[in-house]
């Protein structure tokens, strides 16, 4: 089955992904502007864009385990997935800044410094900037593969912080954000090489 998926995946070009990938964001705004997102469209869009960003981060983190454990190779789509995740984080942030908090910079700055979930969200956004900037072949070549890979391990922290942001912003311990956090934690744990753990080596 893995071979079949790999054969098909090789035939699919990557570039349409960039176009298809932004459609949900535009659709969300279209739904909001036409009154089909309930009575608080701004919050609905803000939340949905954030969810898409987390889902794309999860998709990006799933690529390596899929290859390692199932032999499914979707590596060629990973850059597009990562850049789309950055696009959704930017859209999520822009919606908060412009439509929700409405560029009240005093309040925005206080929120970033004082509200831990916003501090964490902003930190995750800031960490994505170098990742997005280096997501092209030219920079990859100049940096060298090893340094590039080291830098892009920041994705692990970004995804984790993104899920913490979600867990913290809801009232009470709600199930949905905890599920996102568990999936991200699981995808990160799968990267640990258990054979190289000190305990396993001793045995």
């Amino acid at each position: 089955m893995a071979d079949g998926i790999n054969r098909t995946a090789r035939r699919i070009p990557v570039w349409p992904l960039y176009i298809l990938g932004v459609v949900p964001a535009l659709a969300e705004y279209a739904l909001g502007l036409t009154g089909r997102l309930g009575v608080d469209p701004v919050k609905a869009i803000e939340q949905q864009l954030g969810l898409y960003a987390l889902q794309l981060l999860i998709a990006g983190l799933a690529i390596t385990p899929l290859r390692r454990y199932f032999g499914i190779n979707l590596l060629r789509f990973r850059r597009a997935i990562g850049l789309l995740a950055f696009f959704y984080v930017c859209a999520h942030l822009a919606t908060w800044l412009v439509l929700d908090i409405q560029l009240l910079w005093g309040q925005i700055w206080r929120d970033i410094l004082k509200r831990p979930y916003i501090t964490i969200g902003m930190a995750a956004f800031a960490m994505m900037i170098p990742l997005a900037v280096t997501s092209n072949n030219r920079v990859l070549k100049r940096m060298g593969a090893a340094a590039w890979r080291r830098l892009h391990r920041l994705t692990y922290l970004v995804a984790l912080l993104g899920s913490v942001h979600f867990v913290m912003l809801v009232k009470g311990w709600q199930l949905e954000p905890l599920i996102y956090m568990a999936i991200i934690a699981a995808l990160l744990l799968l990267r640990l090489d258990f054979r190289r753990m000190p305990l396993a080596r001793g045995a």
């Binding site: 909001g32 502007l33 009575v39 608080d40 469209p41 701004v42 439509l99 929700d100 009240l104 309040q107 206080r110 929120d111 004082k114 509200r115 831990p116 979930y117 913290m168 912003l169």
Partner: peptide, 18 residues
């Protein structure tokens, strides 16, 4: 202030996008 939300301003539901 609430630790997570500033209470200085509020959004009136029903005002739409802007």
């Amino acid at each position: 202030d609430h630790p997570r939300w500033s209470q200085a301003t509020e959004r009136r539901i029903g005002g739409g996008f802007f």
